[in-house]
Design a protein around this nucleic acid. Structure first.
Lengths: 241, 241
DNA sequence: CCAAAAGTGTTATATTTACACCCATGC
DNA sequence: GCATGGGTGTAAATATAACACTTTTGG
């Protein structure tokens, strides 16, 4: 049925070019961790009616980039960091979610190492602020909902995949890693079982260094062993925290 | 900085209304199962340059609906079925993925029971066809890529959540269920261990019926016990196939 | 010598795996 | 009576969970 086909194409062309277009944005839930709490990076919102709220970091997707590109761009431009773990979570498309018109947004979460370099960069930008995840009760738009959805997804994924390392310094102790899981998953782990488990996974590299100038027995330092993980991933891998 | 804020808002208004709009579509990977193979429902494509290919079922997202709404609409209008399991997978947004312009698509997968009612409905529509997943080597647009991504996600989720039931008739035997997993995951399962596992999960209801007119000992029939599952879900649930 | 965190093994329990034969039905 | 799938239990191996004390460092 060629006429049917042409009909269909014309409808598509019309819809694609005018009627049914929407703005598409990305919003990033940027997680950081500081040995005490899980935090997210938020920005003072300057858009009515949310002038007194904070919002997630996001932007419109440009005509020449994918949504992944856009999310990376937001991260790099706002945090100055290029080595970030990014994960697409889901689309939020409630018709009236944005006061200025139809904006369909793609939510991402990102894990970054909060270190000195970051802090210098971030402190220059007084619109940005780290907030404890637990103390966040309100955000602009539907961003609280987005944040909660991303948090849940991250909590699930951190049990299945070795992504927690992205929140820690390059070198870390086993107790640091354990504390990270306890804070993020809100549970208590047995020290000996945790260590046995991690060592048996074979994705940690003992770098032969120890902590310096701590007022207790210094801990061994480890790094995440990416190549060992890549090998294991091929034959199936279960983190199982 | 109010001027900064106003600047920002004007930029947004411009971008949302003109410059940076895109068409947003949904594409559904509709899985069905017929005791032999995992299949997906595809449609003859009538859009150049893909006139001789099949494509996934999809449509533009309308101004008054969410992407979930749009996916449901596509499913109901194309398959006639309202009781379908739908799962958002991810966004595909390569700039040149669609020949008619920028179309950002949200991929869903769906699990449906292929039964008599469906078949009658579907046979009326000669644009639609069930294809074995294994025998699909080409689809229009980037739909093969979308299909493969959705298939992988479904294979992961069917191990973690009791969603396989959506592909089977309401009443099914344990061996039917086992075969389903074997076909979808491409592995062999031990009959006794599989049965022990499923029974221990406590999400099957023995409905006290047996198969009729089969030329061997008739099997007991079970249903998925939704209320039992809901209870278990609250206290954490691992399907663990 | 004290405070603080590092590091280390064993036992009990639960889970997973491997494996083979008899049963009920239709033809 | 035979072909077809239905249905069942046990033992070994593995994984998980619970639990307490000694060690090393800085001050």
């Amino acid at each position: 049925m060629p006429s049917d086909g042409v009909q269909n194409i014309n409808t598509w062309i019309t819809q694609i070019n005018t009627d049914f277009k929407a703005a598409v944005s990305v919003d990033c839930v940027i997680f950081g961790y500081d040995d005490e709490a899980l935090k997210i990076l938020v920005s003072k919102c300057d858009m009515p009616p949310f002038e007194h709220e904070f919002s997630l970091l996001g932007d419109i997707v440009h005509p020449d980039e994918t949504t992944d590109d856009a999310a990376k761009r937001v991260l790099i431009s706002k945090t100055g960091f290029t080595d970030v773990y990014l994960n697409q979570v889901q689309v939020f498309s409630e018709v009236k979610r944005h006061p200025l018109g139809r904006v369909i947004t793609v939510a991402y979460y990102s894990l970054i190492k909060i270190d000195q370099e970051h802090l210098v960069h971030l402190e220059k930008n007084d619109h940005l602020e780290w907030k404890n995840v637990n103390e966040l009760s309100s955000l602009a738009f539907d961003h609280l909902n987005i944040m909660q959805t991303c948090l849940k997804k991250m909590q699930i994924q951190i049990r299945e995949q070795p992504i927690g390392f992205h929140l820690l310094p390059q070198k870390f102790s086993l107790l640091q890693l354990q504390k990270l899981y306890e804070v993020i998953l809100n549970l208590e782990l047995d020290k000996r079982n945790f260590r046995r488990k991690l060592k048996s996974l074979g994705i940690l590299k003992d770098i032969g260094e120890i902590q310096e100038s701590v007022s207790h027995r210094p801990a061994r330092l480890y790094e995440f062993d990416n190549s060992a993980y890549d090998k294991k991933k091929k034959s199936g891998f279960d983190f199982g925290i």
